[in-house]
Design a protein around this nucleic acid. Sequence first.
DNA 1: TCTGGGGTCCTAGGACCC
DNA 2: TCTGGGGTCCTAGGACCC
Length: 429
Amino acid sequence: MNTTGLKNDNIVALVDCNNFYVSCERVFNPKLNNKPVAVLSNNDGCIVSRSQEIKDLKIPMGAPGFKYEGLIKKHGGTLLSSNYALYADMSSRVMEVLALFSPEVEIYSIDEAFLGLNGFKNRDLENFGKKIKRTVFQWTGIPVSVGISQTKTLAKVANHFAKRYSAFQGSLCLLDDERITKALAKTPVSEVWGIGRQYDKFLRQHKIETALQLRDAEDKFIEHYLTSVGLKTVLELRGYACIDLDEAPANKKSIVTSRSFGKQVSSLNDLQEAISEYVTRAAEKLRKQKSVAGLLMVFLSTNRFKEGPQYNNSLSTTLFPPTAYTPELIKTALNLLDDLYLPGFEFKKAGVMLADIIPEKDVPLSFMDTNYLDDKRKKLMEAMDKLNRTYGQDTLFYASSGIKKDWKMKRAKLSPHYTTHWNDLPKVK
DNA sequence: TCTGGGGTCCTAGGACCC
DNA sequence: TCTGGGGTCCTAGGACCC
């Protein structure tokens, strides 16, 4: 970590979509404009995306949807189930536009990207940011905010200001020390990237309440209480880039697929169907990154919000040799489930985790005779993945996942799949 | 009964992010 | 009636080895 050298002259932009899921819904349903709109998590549970009008109603992020449905309706607003297929598709459109503005793009999440701007020092970056915003909106309909500064952490700060104060018109460039200091003085420490609830509470107890006070804190103190990660944050606030731009998304080291059920589930048969389906999804993700897993875990839990006997447990087993072959993973998972299952409980959630993930090319050849890479099994998986990619998820599926699926999650307020299903294409009249 | 120093690896738990 | 899902990294402590 460079703590003594010259401040580097890095420049990075953070482009962040405003109220992303809500904005996606509005692109295809303009009636939602200027009204309160919130998007719910899986199973129509918590509010995970809020329009400005919802924020103005003081409805917090993560709040259970049912508690606020009345209030939202009263103000002429709408609650929607999440439509991840739509959001993923809109996200890749936004990212394609961003790629036109810089050769270095790190897609950080479904609605955020960092752009490396080191070759852009002599440009009018203030206007460059506004141009990004304008273009993304024209081409995708999604409003974004742009923050530009010396490090990722400072670009986040700039982005917050761009989003919050309309005077900036959605884009702010923080490059000279005086402006940075001013902005940090106005930023509560809890808003700094890397400072969560626990650290916020701790820092406040020690009279560190603004980003500026955090920037000027003692290195030793920070490293001791916030670990090396916290120290990086502080150095980033000082303008030393410690968190590099990461253009190639790293392979996942663990893959989890878990869902809450639409209703309480107590039969082993329903759980077997759900677990089969989750394994299928997880294994697809695993094969997509050309990896195999060496460990499989299955977990079950009852409803923690409900009175009554609780049961939360997991079981795992090693996979040897490591594999990505769905039928074998399902078989192994169902065996684990048999051991894990206890009758008499009302289960609310189940899931599987694949871990000890390695690239398939690293599996020793000596295991070839039992290796999924070696024989028809891999070809079969490739064929299935291709079919399901082209014709939609579960064009081909495993009988163990069931057909009726009583346990399926609830998505009562789902918008059409405007961009990903032919039948749901918007109609032009 | 007394009883060193150092290294590695693994795991659980806790912090953070979106 | 109804309270999400999916990740990463770091550290402390225990097991084990010489």
